[in-house]
Design a protein around this nucleic acid. Structure first.
Lengths: 227, 227
DNA sequence: GGAATAGTGTCTCTGAGACAATATCTA
DNA sequence: TAGATATTGTCTCAGAGACACTATTCC
């Protein structure tokens, strides 16, 4: 066992606890259009927070993030990435806790069966995530984390069709444009958008039907790029 | 004091230690040209590592990074930023330690007076940082950290003249181009480079002299942008 | 004048952005 | 047919990239 110059081991020193928190983002269809949303879980006290957990001593951050998703919101199969560490000394009333925030962006169908009274989706309206019960803020500093997670999502979607496969296998350019408008938070011109995206897509040959107007070509992502 | 449902507090649970490590990058002039370099410190065992320290329980990451720079390499006044957390379970032989890697890019004059037998600059040659004593690798996973730090540095210098003020107040476009070529790792065309940079600069009116060839205009950074 | 370095003119490509026309479906 | 949506034509503008030319200094 390793000992330092004073004969002490690492665990003899006071040190902060480490948690992971995961901002699991998705998009949902509402009456007024497509909106980004984040998955939140109700805590014992009744307030809402991102799923998170304490990092165990021999655990990797990625595993802890997966465990938080499985145990707190019943979601499996995601691929959370590190966002950054949040370390404000007053951020957790339980004691000194720094958290490694993670983020992922997933298809809403992966979450649909998991929603309960205490696991909900909070849609983004006017740059704020709207919580159930009309609550104003997420617990801890999770409002900061979700804001940074949305910035990450916008970054990954600019210039790429659908890296998180939010649209499934095939989609029309209108589907894709509505998705990007939702994530970006504003309208996008259809011809410019088409020309930027088309080289990254391949038409399937099938066309939409059943609705009014000229049928649209279906596309899928070119898989020779990180689309 | 906060207690959980089992009557235990946070410090009753086994948990990893947290360190911060700082990749302090700079550029140095050598006989063959300008090269990026990273500040390394010799450890008791004789191997080289980035300056780092354990995060104390009530300390912020930023403060710990500054403390590591002050205590381990005698450098003050820098502004390290978070890179990401490195958490490989075997990365530290002393026990379970995750590290929050930080990075900053500073003028070599800020380091020149601090170099000693055990505090040195390792220049980047052919995508590898060359250590003193002909040693192959940095301690722990610090080779991974320095590689990611260089990626960060390249990102911050693309499209901006000199955000880290590596050239001081005034410089010619040739000075600037040599700096960018060193950081980017390859040659840059002078006319294209000039046209991209000139809108971000303001000429001082003075011109170089004393050497062969047509004198060059001196410039400084426009400070109405994050240059 | 010759060597060396600084700075500019110009051409080609590419892509964004905007407007408007044309095409093809449903009701 | 009218209405709705998809798709394309075209014009302008800006910037990257490349090549070659001109300008100004020191020796």
């Amino acid at each position: 066992m390793w000992l330092d110059s004073r004969g002490l081991q690492l665990s003899d020193y006071p040190r902060p606890s480490v948690t992971v928190d995961v901002a699991l983002l998705t998009v949902i269809e509402t009456g007024t259009g497509t909106l980004p949303a984040v998955l939140v879980a109700r805590r014992p006290g009744g307030d809402w927070a991102l799923p998170g957990t304490f990092l165990r001593i021999d655990e990797r951050l990625h595993s802890a993030a997966l465990r938080a998703l499985r145990d707190k919101v019943g979601v499996t199969g995601e691929h959370p990435r590190q966002l950054r560490v949040f370390d404000d000394p007053g951020r957790d009333p339980r004691g000194r806790v720094v958290t490694v925030a993670h983020v992922d962006l997933v298809h809403p169908a992966r979450l649909a069966g998991r929603l309960t009274d205490s696991v909900r989706l909070a849609p983004l309206v006017a740059e704020r995530f709207v919580l159930p019960d009309g609550q104003e803020r997420l617990a801890f500093d999770h409002d900061l984390i979700t804001a940074e997670a949305m910035r990450w999502a916008r970054g990954t979607y600019t210039g790429r069709p659908d890296p998180a496969r939010l649209l499934g296998g095939t989609f029309t350019l209108n589907d894709l444009r509505r998705l990007h408008a939702a994530i970006h938070g504003g309208p996008l011109q259809k011809d410019t958008f088409r020309r930027r995206m088309e080289p990254l897509l391949v038409p399937t040959g099938e066309r939409s039907s059943g609705s009014v107007g000229r049928p649209a070509q279906f596309y899928r992502r070119r898989n020779d790029l990180d689309n």
